[in-house]
Every structure is written in C-alpha cells, then in structure tokens.
C-alpha cells in the first residue's frame, strides 16, 4: 500500500458516498445515469468474485464489500425507492455498445484464459468506459448539479491516482500490469474534458454547464 493507492481508494469511497448522499438528501436521482450505475454494479460483481476464493487483507475485504453493497444500494435507490425521479429520457446511451465489445475484448486480451481471470479483465475494461452514459447524459442536458460534479470529480480522480500508484509500484516493487494500466489511462482520459470544466467552473463557485 502506498499513498497514491490509499488516496485513490479514499477518493473512490468518497465518490460513492457523495452519490448516495445526493440521492438520499435530495430524495432524487435526477441527473444520474442509471446505466452507468448498473455497469458499476456489474464491474464490482465481476471483479470481486475473488472475495470467495482468496483473502488478501481485512482492508481489501472490507472495501470490496462496501463497494459491492453500495453499488447495489445505489441501484435500489434509483430504480425502486426514488424511481419516479429517474431521468430516463436523458439516459439514452446504449449499454450494449459498451458491454458487448468489452466482453469480446476480455476474451481476446487477458492474462489467463480462465473464468475468474476473464471476469476480472471484463470488469477492468468495463470500468474504464462505464462512465460514458453519465457523461453523455450531462452533454445532453448541458449541465450537472454541483454535488453530481463533485461525485464525478472524486470518481475520476480515483483512477488518476491509481496511475501514480502503478508508476510507484513499477519503480519500487517491479510490478506492472499492462491491462490495468492501459484501461486505467483510457478511463482517466475520458474524464479530461469534465476535469477541465469542473476546475474552471465549479471551483469558481459556478454550476457545471456546458458551453453552448
């Protein structure tokens, strides 16, 4: 564990808490993409199947359980409890355009052709693009609530911090995982446009709106 990974994990946890808080406090999931959230639940489910097969640390197990539980908690709030507030008209990104190619790629490019490993690879690839329906939704409506933009910033920062973690691990532990690194870079790049808007607008106290 290094400082980059720890802050990355904390940013990830913070993002999830921010999203749950936004939905709970405003009693609304307006502006949140249910499709991105469904894919995140799928990401955690397929990646953390190793909870059953091997134990790493109490920290690892606890965080994994929190991530899985919170992703399904978010789905529960969005699709059951506050279903009426779900903005499905603006959540029109086609999930199959991401899930199908990602599934295909995880069969073709992986570290080991075994079920758990393919599912892990699938989750890594899917995570890298799972935010697209959310970003697409913001581009359709042209704006995002400030709390939603904080959520996205924390969520995007997490993988950027993981890149620093991988650089650190490469130099100090001789560890390198090409699949995770490439997917992590793709994931971070997808947020760049959002990061720019967030820093130039939200940090100056304005609402996140897209240029017309």
């Amino acid at each position: 564990m290094n400082v980059f990974r720890l802050t990355g994990d904390i940013a990830h946890l913070l993002a999830i808490i921010l999203l749950l808080m936004k939905i709970w406090k405003t009693r609304s999931c307006a502006g949140v993409s249910g499709k991105s959230q469904m894919m995140f639940a799928l990401v955690f489910t397929t990646r953390y199947l190793d909870l059953i097969t091997n134990f790493i640390s109490l920290y690892n197990t606890t965080m994994k359980m929190i991530f899985i539980a919170s992703s399904y908690g978010t789905l529960y709030l969005m699709f059951l409890k506050f279903r009426a507030t779900y903005d499905s008209n603006h959540d029109t990104f086609r999930m199959e355009f991401l899930v199908v190619p990602v599934a295909g790629l995880s069969f073709l490019v992986n570290h080991d052709f075994s079920p758990l490993e393919i599912l892990w690879t699938f989750s890594i690839y899917l995570e890298s693009v799972a935010i697209l329906p959310q970003l697409f939704m913001i581009s359709k409506t042209g704006e995002a609530e400030t709390i939603t933009s904080h959520y996205l910033f924390a969520l995007g920062s997490y993988r950027a911090l993981y890149i620093l973690n991988w650089v650190y691990r490469f130099y100090f532990e001789g560890f390198f995982d090409l699949i995770a690194v490439v997917a992590g870079c793709v994931q971070t790049v997808l947020y760049c446009d959002f990061f720019y808007l967030y820093i130039t607008k939200v940090w100056k106290g304005k609402k996140l709106t897209l240029p017309a």
């Binding site: 990974r5 990830h12 790493i56 690892n60 965080m63 973690n165 532990e173 560890f175 995982d177």
Partner: peptide, 10 residues
C-alpha cells in the same frame, strides 16, 4: 508477469 499482485488492488 507478476499478474497475481494486482489482486491486492481494488
């Protein structure tokens, strides 16, 4: 190589 170590990441 070293793939197994990634399993300690989240």
């Amino acid at each position: 190589a070293c793939r197994k170590k990634a399993k300690d990441e989240l």
